[in-house]
């Protein structure tokens, strides 16, 4: 089938790329754009390691999203979370609270956490559980991941307060 040229913005960078209609966003990012930070897992939407965020903050399983549907749209991946040269508070918290082990699902965990904390910096236990339900992590047992998210939430809350005052 004929390829189609799409305009795709990843982490603020504009790309024009020819894609086949059946190619997924994951394949295009990894294989055409060489953005390998987003990992390829089950490719069937069940493990969550390929999670990226859409422009409205949606949680996207990039292994199930067809690239052609993202023509003219933008996504954020784990490579676009840092703030300048600094780790984002979520990344910092994951690192400092031991929420990272083998690191393969970490991009999926970070992007799921970011989608949650971008809209809710006071998440309940249930909010966190629901937001993280899509990612399977065999190493951490999710325990330090949840702690890291709670700690990151408090940093982000503080930042909101400070921002509000200034």
């Amino acid at each position: 089938m004929a390829k189609q040229l799409i305009a795709l913005t990843v982490n603020g960078d504009p790309y024009e790329v020819a894609v086949s209609p059946h190619q997924t966003l994951l394949e295009v990012m990894r294989d055409s754009l060489n953005l390998t930070g987003t990992k390829r897992g089950c490719t069937a939407g069940s493990c969550g390691v390929c999670t990226v965020n859409g422009e409205q903050g949606e949680v996207i399983l990039s292994c199930l999203a067809l690239a052609v549907e993202w023509d003219g749209r933008s996504v954020t991946t784990v490579e676009g979370v840092e703030e300048g040269n600094e780790l984002h508070p979520i990344q910092k918290s994951f690192l400092e609270h031991g929420a990272v082990q083998c690191g393969f699902c970490t991009p999926g965990l970070i992007m799921s956490a970011k989608a949650l904390l971008d809209v809710n910096t006071s998440p309940s236990e249930t909010d966190i559980n629901e937001a993280m339900a899509g990612v399977i992590c065999r190493c951490t047992g999710h325990i330090k991941v949840k702690k890291a998210i709670k700690e990151a939430a408090s940093v982000l809350r503080e930042r909101e307060v400070n921002h509000g005052e200034s």
Partner: peptide, 14 residues
Amino acid sequence: SRLDGADKVSGRSI
């Protein structure tokens, strides 16, 4: 903190 942690949380790990 793990020494390779910053790479792992920012998608730089290969």
